[in-house]
Design a binder for these strands. Structure first.
Lengths: 203, 203
DNA sequence: CTTTGTCTTGACCATCCGGTAAAATCGACG
DNA sequence: CGTCGATTTTACCGGATGGTCAAGACAAAG
């Protein structure tokens, strides 16, 4: 079943994964029920379990599909580019993801909150290696005087935190700002560019 | 039962709330079981249910106890103080809370991820009012030329996001940095002070 | 010591939920 | 069309979980 062998299998597995993403991200792993996922995917529970053996397997599949997209913006950070522009572009890409794929962000957040039981190996493997590589890039920029000398790891954390906040804490942001359509993403992006590049102290 | 009338009631309700905080923050609302909370509180499930009528009531109690502490650091932002020092101090207080009360932060995050079903009224009420008030303070600082002219709402969001990240995404931070004792909080605080005050662009 | 209300417990129940079995239906291909 | 594997459904099971109940243990006041 791992490699879909028919058209119907490919379609249904994709539909299930999409439905599962919505339900898991909104309710957490334990809060999500197989019935709820099946209903959202437009099929019966036993039918769903024909495609995935267990609830756990669905969850893992969703996490796996997530990961590549998740790491893509950081991968795109280009040593050869202009440092200031690269960082601004990274912020923009991440804010766009928070706006366009909030469920993905929330699912990831849920997994982190629980201690990443299904991702700890990836975090300590691929993710860690990627961050180390990009930290080196940032340090090189610092050393060349292109940006200030700051801890590259905590810089990356700050970029993740500020941008994902607009997805993970969306209720709070909307409650505080009042309903603003999608203006918060635009304003947030503008603010973050300003914050990260120039800080608050008047020049 | 709402107002504890005996010593034992006060003690046990407090023990239950503490245990519930740990369990809810680690497992989410649905993932937490009354049995698990009771065990952690060192009592039987029916005994626990003698003090709180339902699991939901326990959860609401924990959320309520949380809120005052949660808003305290922002409340402490003092218009009369030096703006740069006030913001740096706010960052420090929030980082300390992430280090010393990570369960509180995670519980809050869990609630936000689910759409804040039990807090939406507070978010749109007290929290919103408090943020509006402090936003005015920040805007006054900007107008006086004490800090740059930035959107005060998004500034507050950025402070929340970056500091709480060290509690909510602790697994990820530790996975990326390797185990560092508690150095990450110190380094993170130093980085954030630098970021918020001066930004990345070289001066 | 005894009484009275507080606290605690063991046994139990109903529901929800993940998962299974087997029969029924569908659909691609000869 | 007819066949056979792929897909879907109906009915069901067992364990977990939130919550109840009635009786017993305990503590404080007299």
């Amino acid at each position: 079943m791992n490699a879909p062998r028919t058209r119907i299998q490919a379609e249904n597995r994709a539909r299930i994964a999409a439905a599962a993403l919505d339900v898991f991200s909104a309710e957490g792993f334990r809060g999500a029920t197989v019935d709820a996922i099946a209903e959202r995917a437009g099929m019966s529970k036993p039918n769903l379990l024909y495609y995935f053996p267990t609830k756990d397997a669905i969850y893992r599949e969703v996490l796996e599909r997530l990961l590549d997209d998740w790491l893509a913006p950081l991968r795109a950070l280009d040593e050869a580019g202009d440092p200031v522009q690269e960082i601004a572009a990274y912020l923009d890409r991440k804010i766009e993801m928070a706006r366009d794929f909030p469920a993905e962000s929330r699912l990831f957040a849920n997994e982190m909150l629980r201690g990443a039981p299904n991702m700890i190996d990836v975090l300590e493997g691929d993710l860690r290696a990627l961050v180390r590589e990009k930290a080196k890039v940032i340090r090189a920029w610092s050393a060349a005087g292109k940006i200030a000398k700051v801890d590259p790891y905590h810089l990356i954390f700050a970029i993740w935190a500020t941008t994902q906040h607009y997805a993970d804490y969306d209720v709070q942001v909307r409650a505080v700002l009042g309903d603003d359509g999608e203006g918060r993403f635009h304003d947030g992006a503008a603010f973050l560019r300003r914050l990260f590049l120039d800080g608050l102290r008047p020049r």
